[in-house]
Amino acid sequence: MTAPDTSASPVPREAEPIKAIPVRHPGRWVAIAVIAVLAAMFVHLLVTNKAFNWPFMFQNMFTPPVIRGLVGTVTITVLAMIIGVVLGIVVAVARLSDNPILRGTSWAYTWFFRAVPRYVLLIVMGNLGILWPRLEIGVPFDTYLGKLFGLENAHWRLFGIETRELLVGFWVGVLGLALSEAAYMAEIVRAGMLSVDPGQDEAATALGMSRGQALRRVVLPQAMRVIIPPTGNETIAMLKDTSLLIAVPVTAELFFQLSAIGNRTFQVFPMLVAAIIWYLVLVSILLVGQYFLEKRFSRGYGRAAKAKMKLEGLAAEHGANPEVP
């Protein structure tokens, strides 16, 4: 408010601030007491129970194999998310296309990969070698085509490798997690694209932009605002799901390494606690990153931005009209 406005209104009067006795909350004190006792019992357990074997845990949670596993876990998370997001965008765009074949295919993709549990999917991927001992690139159905032309055992192949060589832990893990992630990301991206006002696509179309241009330049950048927050959650879930890779198995992975040490030394529990601590640390880092990402992508938009502007407006009002005369 500016000075001329207030000068026209009545002069503010002095007032005695209210001094009242606050309402008592005995329930809170009871709750504090109960929680304090439970916390004390928990700390007592941690300190006195020999099964925790803290010195052993601290000695072993920073060993080179564990650190390599840690790096592997982070690498797999990043790779699986990158492939998952890119593939997810492709599937989402296909799902929203005019082409019924693409729409059906992408629907079937999301249906399949959302229905199969990740753990089961990873075990299946680890055992694909049973299906095809060798993977080869060549003409599809070559033996049948050969028979049509009177050739027995026609093999028109360019090159091939042993499945066991290709599907070594790491890449099976990345691929399995990425394929599954793409199905979820497709749903998230689709929701994001549907959240963009259809008038935006229309305006881009009316300007003569192609579907691809409208998508890349107009729709997707705006959909990002809706896509980013759940993608942060997906990344965190993905980091935790790397522990499922023990099913493939993937050796360059945190949980595999920690439980290997536990099994070898018969110190299972300390290593499980070490796993919990590592995951807590990693997820906490991601949570910080997610906070800043969301802040960045909500710039200039939506309720949060409007609320902020309103707060700034209120602050300005307070500044102009100090409460204490």
């Binding site: 006002d197 008038g199 935006q200 229309e202 305006a203 881009a204 179309t205 009316a206 300007l207 003569g208 932009m209 192609s210 330049r217 107009v218 950048p221 705006q222 200039g300 938009y301």
Partner: peptide, 20 residues
């Protein structure tokens, strides 16, 4: 069709400016 639309400008009731 896009090439035809390039030669026809359109202004909408709700403006439809690109907010980003």
């Amino acid at each position: 069709v896009a090439a035809q639309r390039r030669e026809i400008g359109m202004v909408f009731q709700r403006f439809n400016l690109f907010p980003h």
